[in-house]
Amino acid sequence: MNIYVINGPNINLLGTREPEIYGHETLDSISKDCIKKGLKDGHDVKFMQSNYEGEIVEWIQNAIKEKIDAIVINAAAYTHTSIAIHDALKSFSGFKIELHISNPHLRESFRHVSYISPVVDAVVAGLGANGYSHVIELLADLQKSYK
């Protein structure tokens, strides 16, 4: 299984940005952990991060072209604004998971609307940095039951 884990703006600051909300783990350590977990089950996990909306759209388009099996997307603040990412995800027919480190529904009201949620298969939020590895672990089981 080929999996893209796409991360949006400011996720590169993990570990230093508001650690009381996002924790102390860095994106680098999360990605290493996920790639290792994926390899164990025979999955190829690619981690990416961009602060640019257009680049995220291009990665999703690339996932369509490359026939990637699953996208895990933490669109961060673009979650609440980006119709472009919403549209791109709609065209991707593989398994799609929206992920957030904190639970946006418990935070400021401007984070309560997600343009991503209606176009994905599943939503995971508020499990901290561990959310990533939990999702990667589960994808093997999902592959069995959905394909």
């Binding site: 639970n103 997600s114 298969d121």
Partner: peptide, 23 residues
Amino acid sequence: VDITKPIKVSEGNVGFVSGFGIH
């Protein structure tokens, strides 16, 4: 679901998992 209308999920410090079926 009208996505412009926020859905109230549990308040308090909770995790949220939706859409994986039994998983």
